[in-house]
Design a binder for these strands. Structure first.
Length: 238
DNA sequence: CGTTTTTGACCAGCGC
DNA sequence: GCGCTGGTCAAAAACG
């Protein structure tokens, strides 16, 4: 087992020289600790995002994008939304499209990995905006289930659970097909905060941890220290 | 004793 | 319709 959060893990994961690639044109900005509702750019939707700067490691903590707090859900984790319950969050619900998520989180990540085979791979955090663009190519079906948007990134780490500043509680573990490592499911322990994340190791490279976040925190990171001060606005493009 | 993790069962969605 | 799969639940166990 491992603790739900572990301080310094990020540093363990990114180790000696946490070098995170920055591609500002992606429009992904981790500097805000208090994120407004995210917006998608149709252009960048299909892009894979990376974040940059050494201090991005610390910024990453507590600044992980997620969903607007008022995003509809019955709170039980069970389904219950009507198909018509898609309005302003339509874009989000598309990102939550099951076909996209199930394949999106993993496959998109995989695509990115392959794109970076020759890159500085090792000590990078790679933020993946998911293959929403690819999804958009498909016919978008109306589905009952409204999923929250996700983004995932991979890190090279010996520990699975990276310290992102929030406290998580594990609620499930599952062995997914074609992988030898189980996928763990975590939920934010904060009341009324339904952010989830799942953690798995890459089949191809078990040293790499894939963390997928889903939803938006309605609160600040639990160990909100210096970095908790809300910076100005932020718009996230994927 | 309260909290967290484990783990088998259950359920919904998707593809065939 | 059926089987497969991923995601979640919840009771029990483990932990601090």
């Amino acid at each position: 087992m491992f603790p739900s959060t572990s301080k310094g893990v990020m540093n363990q994961g990114l180790v000696e020289n946490p070098e995170i690639m920055a591609t500002s044109h992606m429009g992904f900005n981790l500097q805000a600790s208090h994120l407004p509702p995210l917006t998608f750019s149709p252009y960048s939707l299909s892009k894979t995002c990376t974040v940059g700067g050494e201090d991005a490691v610390s910024r990453l903590r507590g600044n992980l994008p997620s969903l607007p707090p008022d995003h509809g859900d019955d709170g039980s984790g069970r389904l219950g939304q009507s198909p018509t319950q898609r309005s302003s969050s339509d874009l989000w619900s598309r990102t939550g499209d099951r076909a996209a998520s199930d394949k999106g989180s993993s496959v998109a990540a995989g695509e990115y990995y392959s794109n970076n085979k020759n890159g500085p791979a090792a000590n990078n955090i790679i933020i993946d905006g998911l293959s929403v663009g690819a999804m958009r190519m498909k016919k978008v079906k109306v589905r009952r289930k409204v999923r929250e948007p996700r983004f995932c990134f991979k890190t090279m780490s010996e520990v699975d659970v990276l310290d992102d500043g929030y406290k998580w509680r594990k609620y499930g573990q599952k062995v997914v097909k074609n992988t030898q490592h189980p996928r763990s499911y975590y939920r934010c322990t904060q009341e009324n905060c339904r952010v989830k994340k799942r953690i798995e190791r890459m089949a191809e490279d078990p040293r790499m941890v894939i963390t997928t976040y889903e939803g938006r925190h309605v609160h600040s990171p639990s160990h909100a220290e210096e970095e908790s001060q809300p910076s100005s606005e932020v718009t996230l493009f994927w």
